[in-house]
Each structure stands twice: as C-alpha cells, then as structure tokens.
Amino acid sequence: MTAAPAPIIRVEHLFKRFGALEVLRDVSLTVARSEVLCVIGPSGSGKSTLLRAIAFLEPYSTGRIYIEDTLLGFVEQNGKLVPDRPRNIDRTRRHLGMVFQQFNLWPHMTTLRNVSEALVLVKRIARGAAEETARTMLAKVGLADKADTYPSRLSGGQQQRVAIARALAMEPQVLLFDEPTSSLDPELVGEVLQVMKQLAAEGMTMIVVTHEMGFAAEVADRVLFMDAGAIVEHGPANQLFRTPHSERLKQFLQTWKERNLIGL
C-alpha cells in the first residue's frame, strides 16, 4: 500500500462568526487531486460561506485552511494566526479559480477580453498570446464564435460558460463553483453542467456548491451535506443519496424529491 497523496485542500476546524452568529461551526474536510466534491444543503446552511472562506473572500475566524500545504490568509506566529500580506494571499489563491452564481463578468469588456485580461495583467503574457489562449478556452466551453461579443448580448448560460473559461485560462489547480446554475433559466442549466462534467472527466479538481442533486449524484466523488454551519453527513454520492443516516438529510432529500415529482 502506498500512502494516500497529499490533499490539495485541507480545512481544519473552521469557524466563521459574524458577531454572535456562528455561520461555520467546526468544519473539517480534505479534497484530493482530481476529486469532485459537491456541497449540498438548505439555504443558510453555510455552504457558500465555506466556499468563500476557502477562496479567502471571507476571512475565517478560527481554524486553518491549507492550499497545497500553504496556510491560506494567515501566518502562524507563536501559535497565533496573524493576517498574511495581500501579496502572499494572492500567491496562494493562484491555485484556485472561482465561478460565481452571478457570473460576474466585466460588462465593459468583450468575451475575449474578459478571458484574456488576467493573463495579460497577472501572468504578464503578451496580448496576442493571451488572446490565443482565451480563444482556446472559449472553444472549450463551446463559445468560439462569441469572442467579440459583450456579456450583455449573451444568455445567462453563455455568460456562465465564459466565466468558466475565464477561470480556466489561469490554469488553477482547483475550481470552486458557488451555485453556478442557481440564477439560470431551467433550460440553460444543462449547457453549464455539461461543461462542468467535461472538466470533471478531464481530471479537474472541483468543489461545487449546488442544488443540482442530479449533477452531484452523477459527477461527485464525494458529497457533503451541511446544515446550520456544520457538516452533517458526507460520503460517496451513492451512499449519501440512497442510505442517508441523519434525519436532517433524509428530510432534505425528501423535500427535494417531492418538489421534483411535482415538476413532472
């Protein structure tokens, strides 16, 4: 037996408080290379906050997050956590790419510019080469013909695919998805999930906060169910969906099934 490879992401005893409110309570998890982890749970369960903490868009209160074995956002001094310098945070963050619920494309730039801008500004790649990479990425998400279009002329599904291309162009080790299909019309969800499935098949490491149970069941290596800021249950998708242990998860899945039956 060989030792398990070191995880890309390690979260240890994470707490996040807004004043007296505990949004994350003692969350620990690891993500291995090429693993797809789906995080499900009711709204307000803290799943988006967890993802944003891993991206360090929300500084965490206590605990530790390691990205590729580097402590994220803080440095340890005499056993205490001191905020790290922004430059170091940026460097650690470079392993991560993020896709948001609201796409967050820059409306004043063409699609091509949206995807190539960070390559030029951050990676210092020449404009021409950066645009070439950007075209490759746009082709990958099926939008090669939309390079010169502004985001306002694209559908939500297309915008989200551009956002995925933009994140991919930076060659992150891990892609974080924060409810990537939640603000899409139902008929546009499929095209985004299709791109995500393709990425998973190619071995991209992904953490996906989602309400798409079908996607979780099909693509996730592991599913994590959160409620009230804590991980209630986690395991392989099959196990979690077929034989849930906790009452809370059973109830959550039941509600979801009922809603979908009505949908039929």
Partner: peptide, 27 residues
C-alpha cells in the same frame, strides 16, 4: 460596481490598483 465583479477580479489575481483602473473606473 457590483461587489461580485471585484471579487472575480481578486480571484484572478488582479491587484487593487488593477481592479480600480481596469474594472471600476472604466465602468
């Protein structure tokens, strides 16, 4: 300027100055 656009820029590694001059000011 929607906060999300700034967060997207920060995740891609843009510096605060670049966020100002490339994302915020032009819009």
């Amino acid at each position: 300027i929607p906060k999300g656009q700034v967060e997207a820029a920060r995740m891609l590694g843009l510096t605060p100055w670049q966020v100002l001059t490339r994302v915020k000011l032009p819009q």
